[in-house]
Amino acid sequence: MTTNTSSSVLAMRDTGPSPEAQISRDIVKRGVMVAPLFVAVSWLAWGTNGAVSSAYGLLLVLCNFMLAAGIIALAARVSYAVMLGSMLFGYLVRLAIVAFAIFVVRDAAWVDLIALGMTVVVSHIGLLFWEMRYVSASLAFPGVRPVPLTTKEHQ
């Protein structure tokens, strides 16, 4: 005999603190920390246009993370079913927003497409790896720096 749990799953929701919001806050914090580095490298490689494009690309990536986390956090308070739907639909919407944001400025005088594209890809993956390092160290509390063991604890 099987039990139909689909209705209860659809009705389930999570009213607790949202880990996605914490992760995205960490990512934004680190993104702001490394922003001067991205801008400086792009300025060295592509000049002033590259630096401005790099800053714009980094802004896009950070907004994308914040939007994704906000959508999950809000939808999870309604129900898991809404969270599933909003994340899949939100993926399309966020891709469209990023595409629109790049298409709008692609012919602008201050845009260097190579710098913009490289910044979007490198910052997205780099910030995720940086965050993953902390999450994997403390899965339940992302963003908390792991405390090194003392010599006594080792023994």
């Binding site: 996605e20 994340m87 995720l128």
Partner: peptide, 15 residues
Amino acid sequence: GMVRTTMFLGAAFTE
């Protein structure tokens, strides 16, 4: 909480 954390990171990597 743990599932959502790994889900968010996995989704972001996939994106």
